[in-house]
Design a protein around this nucleic acid. Sequence first.
DNA 1: ATTACTTTTTAGGCAAGCCTAAATTTATTT
DNA 2: AAATAAATTTAGGCTTGCCTAAAAAGTAAT
Lengths: 222, 222
Amino acid sequence: MNILSHSEENYLKHIYHIAGKERNKVATNSLAERLETKASSITDMLKKLKEKELIEYEKYKGCGLTDLGENIAIQIIRKHRIWETFLVNELNFKWDEVHDIAEQLEHIQSQELIDRIDAFLGFPKFDPHGDPIPNKQGKIEYRELKINLSEAKEDVNYEIVSVNEDSLALLRYLDDNKIGLGSEILILERYDFDNSLKVKIKGKKTINLSEKVTSCIGVRPM
Amino acid sequence: MNILSHSEENYLKHIYHIAGKERNKVATNSLAERLETKASSITDMLKKLKEKELIEYEKYKGCGLTDLGENIAIQIIRKHRIWETFLVNELNFKWDEVHDIAEQLEHIQSQELIDRIDAFLGFPKFDPHGDPIPNKQGKIEYRELKINLSEAKEDVNYEIVSVNEDSLALLRYLDDNKIGLGSEILILERYDFDNSLKVKIKGKKTINLSEKVTSCIGVRPM
DNA sequence: ATTACTTTTTAGGCAAGCCTAAATTTATTT
DNA sequence: AAATAAATTTAGGCTTGCCTAAAAAGTAAT
Ligand SMILES: [Mn+2]
Ligand SMILES: [Mn+2]
Ligand SMILES: [Mn+2]
Ligand SMILES: [Mn+2]
């Protein structure tokens, strides 16, 4: 496999994320939206990635990663999350400051480098946003019992274990309201009208959270 | 100043290095050789860099950095040397393994990142090859009394303080012969025929060094 | 000063990665 | 089923950064 351009690597990574665990077919427009490019540009690149056997693609039918493409995507995600962990744990960046820098660092070409940083950090299992870090072999250990706060039950104590990492505004919002990974959270009330929740963060005041927010928070029963 | 491409940054850096402390005019061909591209490509880029006021350039007369261009070049060199120091000091890479990785890392866009790594390392003054690390303001403190081993005198004890960083073959050669930064070196004999030197490294055997080698080694009297 | 050689620039072209506008295919309504 | 709407692809173009071949300018030798 030849070296891939930053652009090609990004396409693979985003296809992986959009496809999700169920490996759904990825529509041209969903990629265009996520990459903030026009659909016609996506089509161009999909042809190229297919040519390189990194994706499966049929005109008008969407695309999906091949095994090769998926392995590469996972390695990029591994690099992204290890760098984020390094920035937060070692350089004292805040969790909302690291994503953009990691977007650049994830494209540094050196297996040895990322493995040494991994070791330097003590082989962390999760990044600062609670997302699992794939190991060198590409194996990902997902957090067990994790659900979205939006689907959680009342009167059960949960621990916050992850957030949608890419949303800077969300991270700032949570910081501002003293909500973070490890926070203990209890749903006091679910408002059917807009699916918002009144919750109690242990040791803090109660707060109302919109569905937009709760659907981005991963929790696990304690 | 808009963000520069990797390519533009590299041109500035190499112009800086070729021009040297004397800020000599840089010929098109010398850049072409160093960047391993064709002279015509160089001409193209010089026009663009001049347009952006990063270099002074007149047809057939060579080019030189403007203050703006020099500042940017120095910041890239700062990043390169800080990353090399990080790789060697913190991740235990060897001094001959870090240059290529630093060539990539030097283009990461984040003032905050490089300043934090600088702090993390304790604001090192020199990189693993003995080259001075410019500070945040772009000030470079050169090693005093430093001369090339090729110009050093007999019967004076010197300490090795730097090597030409980019030559991988040189670094391997020195490693192989147990010569490194900090080694104490004494010239036993200078052979006029080829300007080679017979030297004694303290605590090691004597060895003959070609002028090619000695001209790449920076030393300081002890 | 003319010739020969070297260096540099110009002209024209190519791949990557994007764009707009138009055409085509697929999906949804009537 | 036909009409309409939405999604996707094609066609043609642009910029960046490179290339080769040819022209022009500068330099050195006769
Ligand atoms: Mn991220
Ligand atoms: Mn993350
Ligand atoms: Mn280097
Ligand atoms: Mn160095």
